[in-house]
């Protein structure tokens, strides 16, 4: 149905994972970033799709993932409440300045989710109304969920003024 509507895009629909015995029922489609808004608007409004809710929006840094070509995969998890089905949409971006269009105009709930992805991965969402850091503070420079950021950080957690009993 998606393929019929947009014949020029290679969606490559595939299940999220395939096991030896059976293929998983969770379906995933791939959309290039420049067509994302158009496809999403179709998915939201079309009567056969009716994905009213953006259930989740996340990102994966496929830095050392086996057989991965692109680095950042932004994953939209769509849910239709009336139809009761789900669809995962993946949109890939790459260094040096990963960019994906924002879907806040379609689902209001994408606001904080996109801010979180920007904060954690450094993927910029063009057209986002208020793209600030959300979980870390404004002066923080790194994007901690990238694979090349160490688990224990780069000394941010030791950088405070020490209060002793004299100084308080």
């Amino acid at each position: 149905m998606l393929i019929a509507k947009f014949p020029d895009i290679d969606f490559a629909p595939h299940p999220l994972m395939t096991r030896a015995e059976k293929s998983h029922e969770q379906l995933c489609a791939r959309v290039p970033p420049e067509r994302l808004l158009e496809v999403m608007r179709f998915l939201r409004t079309d009567d056969r799709c009716n994905f009213e809710q953006l259930c989740d929006l996340t990102c994966i840094d496929y830095l050392n993932f086996p057989k991965a070509r692109d680095r950042y995969g932004v994953i939209y998890s769509l849910l239709s409440i009336t139809k009761g089905h789900r669809l995962w949409v993946k949109c890939f971006a790459n260094d040096p300045s990963p960019q994906v269009p924002s879907v806040v105009s379609i689902w209001k709930g994408a606001n904080w989710l996109e801010r979180e992805v920007w904060d954690m991965f450094g993927v910029r969402f063009t057209g986002h109304p208020d793209l600030r850091r959300i979980l870390t503070w404004e002066a923080f420079e790194a994007h901690p969920l990238r694979k090349d950021y160490p688990l224990r950080g780069r000394g941010e957690r030791e950088d405070f003024e020490r209060i002793t009993r004299e100084s308080a």
Partner: peptide, 15 residues
Amino acid sequence: FDTYAVVQGVDQFLP
């Protein structure tokens, strides 16, 4: 939580 975001013991910065 031995991670980048958590202070490893408040006694480093408070009595």
